[in-house]
């Protein structure tokens, strides 16, 4: 049976086609069993994190501006003290 099949295949030159089919099937099976695409997932994660924490960056800026305001108020108090210093004499 097997030899008959084999002779049939060689007769009709089906062996290369059979091998190709088997190869494709194997490649298909291997490729279809996809592993977790870690690199692509990292990129997506970074993008999402950037979007989600963008508001936080705004908050950061607000925080910085808050500090600036404090600095300004410090400056004002300094100027006030300067003024008081000036008024004192």
């Amino acid at each position: 049976m097997v030899t008959r099949l084999f002779t049939d295949m060689t007769k009709n030159d089906f062996l290369p086609a059979g091998l190709m089919a088997a190869g494709l099937l194997l490649a298909g099976c291997v490729t279809i069993n996809i592993y977790f695409p870690a690199a692509a997932a990292e990129k997506v994660a970074d993008k999402i994190i950037e979007e989600v924490w963008q508001a936080g960056k705004g908050g950061e800026e607000n925080g910085k501006s808050g500090r600036n305001i404090n600095d300004k108020t410090d400056g004002k108090t300094d100027s006030k003290t300067d003024k008081t210093d000036k008024t004192k004499p």
Partner: peptide, 22 residues
């Protein structure tokens, strides 16, 4: 035998294409 091989090739091709797009 030819039919079997044809079927195998077609299945493999479909699988391969699906996997490729995936």
């Amino acid at each position: 035998c030819k039919q079997l091989i044809n079927f195998l090739m077609l299945t493999a091709l479909i699988l391969f294409m699906c996997a490729g797009t995936a």
